[in-house]
């Protein structure tokens, strides 16, 4: 087997892991702060991809269109999330998890049909900007430029989230509120808006993931269904609510899938799932400490 081919396959897997990380970081953030397992997270990711397509098309699929889409799509998704949170979800925080998961399932059903209504069932695509198109040769390995870009964006998001939850007032309140909501409220902080902000940020990450994945794949209905399961798995093996856990989980997921492609192409998709089972056998509550 050609070693340089193996390494570039691994790098592509790692790049895919970065998209998984961005989406599951959003999911785990919402889980950690709000304790809401958001099944509709995948739908928001899909909406992000479709919005990116619409914006990119409005700019004639030019390079500028891609960059605008990358910035605007997460904002559109954030707006959708804000409406959902203020209008519906904020009235349900006192309910049990089961109701919350079913609520987000209802949201998922509605959002998916809305996507079908607005964009139809055809396959869509976004052209990557010229600067990220094609491949470069680094140390003798052939690597798609877009993968390098993803490998740059992923850690950026990780650092941003770490900064947000550890260095900003909002992040500190959010972490405190996830441990003891009432106590934070008693201290005179408007917990409700902190929760809204956390939900919106988490969902915006789903939108960002969708916008980032848009140039690498065909955008279609149903793209939400696999990503949501994958993100749930990543969140579990990483430890619920733990951003770094989500990063490790995503890398395990992406790399094991690449290795699977190398050895058993037909069952490549099953490899990450096997990794999840092994991790959970050894550490039922995930690799890193859960926020709960």
């Amino acid at each position: 087997m050609d070693p340089s081919a193996v390494i570039s396959l691994l790098l592509v897997g790692l790049a895919r892991a970065m998209i998984l990380f961005i989406v599951s970081a959003g999911l785990t953030f919402v889980l950690g702060v709000l304790r809401v397992p958001n099944v509709a997270h995948g739908s928001l990711y899909m909406i992000g991809a479709f919005v990116a397509f619409t914006i990119a098309t409005a700019f004639g699929q030019s390079s500028a269109g891609f960059w605008f889409a990358l910035i605007l799509a997460p904002l559109v998704v954030a707006a959708v999330a804000l409406i959902i949170e203020r209008g519906l979800l904020s009235h349900l925080y006192q309910r049990e998890h089961l109701m919350l998961i079913l609520f987000t399932f209802g949201l998922m059903l509605i959002l998916n049909d809305l996507v079908k209504l607005i964009w139809g069932a055809e396959y869509r695509s976004v052209t990557p900007p010229e600067i990220l198109d094609g491949a470069v040769t680094l140390f003798g390995f052939n690597i798609p430029r877009y993968s390098l870009f993803l490998l740059f964006v992923g850690p950026l998001v990780a650092v941003g989230l770490w900064f947000l939850s550890n260095k900003t007032r909002l992040g500190k309140i959010a972490r405190a509120a996830s441990v003891d909501r009432e106590m934070v409220g008693v201290l005179g902080i408007n917990v409700s808006w902190v929760f809204a902000a956390a939900f919106v940020i988490g969902c915006a990450l789903a939108g960002l993931g969708g916008a980032l994945v848009a140039p690498t794949t065909s955008i279609s209905l149903g793209m939400d269904l696999t990503i949501i399961i994958e993100s749930f798995l990543i969140v579990i093996i990483g430890g619920l609510g733990n951003t770094w856990g989500a990063l490790i989980g995503s890398i395990l997921f992406g790399v094991s899938q690449s290795l699977g492609l190398l050895f058993f192409p037909q069952f490549a998709i099953a490899f990450p799932y096997a990794v999840v089972v092994i991790v959970l056998l050894l550490r039922p509550r995930g690799l890193l400490r859960s926020a709960w």
Partner: peptide, 24 residues
């Protein structure tokens, strides 16, 4: 595990079965 952890672990294990059926 209990509660939500239980449910999410079950979704993952169940999806593993689904993947096998879906891919084989």
């Amino acid at each position: 595990l209990t509660k939500l952890y239980f449910g999410m672990l079950q979704i993952s294990l169940g999806s593993l079965v689904w993947i096998i059926v879906y891919r084989w």
